[in-house]
Amino acid sequence: MTVIEDALFDLAEHLDHPGGEELEATVLRRINEPAPFDASPRSRVRTWLAVAAVVVVIAGALVAIAPARRAIADWLGIGAVEVRRVDRPLPNGPSTHTVPGSLGPTSPAVDEGLQIATAQRRVRFTIAVPRDPTAGTRSGVEVDSRTPGGLVVLRYPRFTLVEIASQGDVPVVGKLVAPGEHVDPATVGGAPGFWVAGAHQVTYLDRSGRVRTDTVRRSGPVLVWVAGGVTYRIEGLDRVTAARIAASVH
């Protein structure tokens, strides 16, 4: 060991670096946070993912999927599937979860009461709004900062429009549909999408790659579509009205 090496080891003990005891807690919190768009790229899934993101629908109630990313990919025909079906109704009752863009209790990551211009500075995509006059007057704008490219919620009297930056990353918001309810392919101005009829569960992958279904809420019928790298979701309208409003979003 040379003098300079000794000096460097000694120096290491005296570095005034940032970071305290709370780092462990912060890391664990981040691991547990919902991550609607995981940062780890899986190039082979990128092309179809845009559509799938949104809607991973599994006929029949389903619980306990692990590892979830593989399960979702499998369901779409990639990788090996590991899905356990159980004949059990979807949970009901008040939501306790904080799925980004949901109508549930507000998370600290969500900023409410914003103006469009303020929200626009916080997301990487251009926020689109419905131009159809029957949409009504917008009653609220929220930004959820947990997604890398941003997520915006626009509230209208009869419906909610959610816009999520797709960014080509692995999508992790899914929907579980109970028996008797169904999903139809749909297009909005030529862009691919789905219409999910009836109530269904919303799920998401947490940062560790697990599907979280324990605290999911029930969602009403939604129209989901993807255009220009942004995923849109309208909730609260019948199919015909949703399609008309969706077509006016730009």
């Binding site: 670096h17 940032p18 970071g19 780092l23 890391v27 940062a39 940062r207 560790s208």
Partner: peptide, 22 residues
Amino acid sequence: AYGIAGSEAEDAVQDAFVKAFR
């Protein structure tokens, strides 16, 4: 991280552990 990124060390380490877990 401090030796490489200076004052950004804490953020870098947080990211690193989260990424390592994934």
